Amino acid sequence: MQTQTHDLTFTTSEVRKRYVSWDRGEADREWACLTLLAQHAPGVAPKPLRKETSDGGPVVVMERIPGEPLGGAPLTSAQTASLGRALRRLYDVPLEAVRDSGLQERIYGPTTHAAMVAEWLGDSSDLTQCRDAEQVQWAVDAASAWLADPDSLPEPQLVALGISDLNPANVLWDGDICRLVDFEDGGLTDPAYELADHVEHIAGRLAGVFDRDALVDAVGLAPEERERMRAYRPLWAAFWLAMLLPGNGGFRRNPSGTTEAQAKHLMELLT
């Protein structure tokens, strides 16, 4: 799996984001998302300024917005409330406008993700490299069985615009307002699916960055959406387990025992 998708350069007023390839359409998705937000939810994300090509790669130039990346510590109540408002404004971009923009389903979207995760979990991994191979195998088998059950997950919906990757580093806080950056994987999605992804993101979950219940309240998910979110959380926990298996970058980058901790977390969601 490709880990580096872009390079960033900064001036006092602009950010130039050069993508390493055209293959996955990141530049087009980013431009479309930023354009929609500038029109329908100004202030949530940087304004798009222009598109360029540099050294054969696509470039999106956007305004530089104030703030420092979150992460490493739990959000304060003010940060959670502001992030919830930003996500709500994102999800409230008119669906017709999103469809008219030409944006398709987000990367790792609700119609395809379960099959992909099942395939990744089914790939052979040398679990002897794990601290507790038996525990990890147990979780892999349980997740695979859960994913094989057609009743495990809700019927997919594509009803809103989403950012896709809410690594806490993609949330900028200026002391008053949270703003969102990095829409290269964004597109059509389901708010419940998005929130499940966000609260299960390993960069936020391991550091306790997001208060799950407080964030859901701040976004204002309806009761039916909260049920859908709960149903989707094991899918994202299984995704991160797959990313943390030996042979994948997550296994190399994280401390020993992280895979076992993810296996334990997944089993807690499944029981």
Rank of each mutant, 00 (worst) to 15 (best):
M1H: 13
Q4V: 12
H6T: 09
H6D: 06
F10W: 04
E14F: 15
R16L: 14
R18Y: 15
R18E: 10
S21P: 02
D28P: 06
W31L: 06
A32C: 09
C33G: 10
Q39K: 13
S54Y: 14
V61G: 13
E63N: 08
I65H: 03
P69L: 08
P74H: 01
T76S: 09
A78F: 11
R88Q: 06
R88G: 04
R89H: 11
L90G: 07
V93S: 10
G102K: 15
L103N: 09
Q104A: 14
E119H: 03
G122C: 03
S125N: 08
L127T: 14
Q129V: 07
V136D: 04
V140W: 01
S144P: 04
A145E: 12
W146C: 02
D151F: 07
S152H: 02
Q157R: 13
A160K: 15
N170C: 12
W173R: 00
D176G: 11
C178P: 04
R179N: 11
L180I: 07
D185L: 06
L188H: 03
P191N: 02
E194C: 02
H198C: 15
H201Y: 05
L206S: 10
G208D: 00
V209M: 00
D217V: 11
A218T: 07
E225A: 11
Y232V: 00
W236N: 07
L241H: 00
A242V: 04
M243W: 01
L244H: 11
G257E: 14
T259L: 12
A263G: 10
E268F: 13
L269S: 04
